[in-house]
């Protein structure tokens, strides 16, 4: 009877090993910790950019200057974007949305994006930052 009898314990052991390896693979590949860390760091960048743009820096508070009127925004939009880009670390892209318009590219949908909302006397400005 030693013919084609498949050994049942060995089969079970094979399934068990596969199960254990699946758990390891899930831990190694599917961990969302990195994405959450990126997101928190980007949120921090966005909040810092908002603070500096709204309160300080060479040439004074850029957001207040740009949001004073529609004409002021047209005149200052490139300066606002240049300032935001200069402030952001080299590996970070920026978009600023204001009640008068937006500067910068659209943020991506498939990657972590940090966001901060900055209240000013002329409305709420929203900053988006992300890694390219």
């Amino acid at each position: 009877m030693g013919r084609a009898q498949l050994s049942l314990p060995l089969l079970e052991a094979g399934v068990g090993v596969l199960l254990v390896l699946a758990v390891v693979a899930a831990l190694a590949l599917g961990s969302p910790a990195d994405a959450g860390t990126d997101r928190a760091q980007l949120d921090t960048y966005a909040a810092d950019l908002g603070t500096v743009l709204a309160t300080a820096g060479d040439g004074g508070p850029r957001l207040a200057t740009a949001l004073a009127s529609a004409d002021a925004f047209a005149d200052n939009r490139s300066a606002l974007l240049a300032r935001a880009r200069a402030l952001a670390p080299a590996n970070v892209l920026v978009r600023v949305e204001t009640p008068l318009g937006a500067v910068g590219h659209e943020p991506p949908r498939d990657r972590p994006v940090g966001v901060a909302r900055v209240p000013t006397v002329d409305g709420v400005a929203t900053l988006w930052v992300w890694y390219p």
Partner: peptide, 18 residues
């Protein structure tokens, strides 16, 4: 016996890795 050894080894490797 072989199955138990295999499974134990797999668990050991997995614990070390994780």
């Amino acid at each position: 016996a072989v199955a138990l050894v295999l499974l134990t080894a797999a668990v050991g490797v997995a614990l070390a890795a994780t």
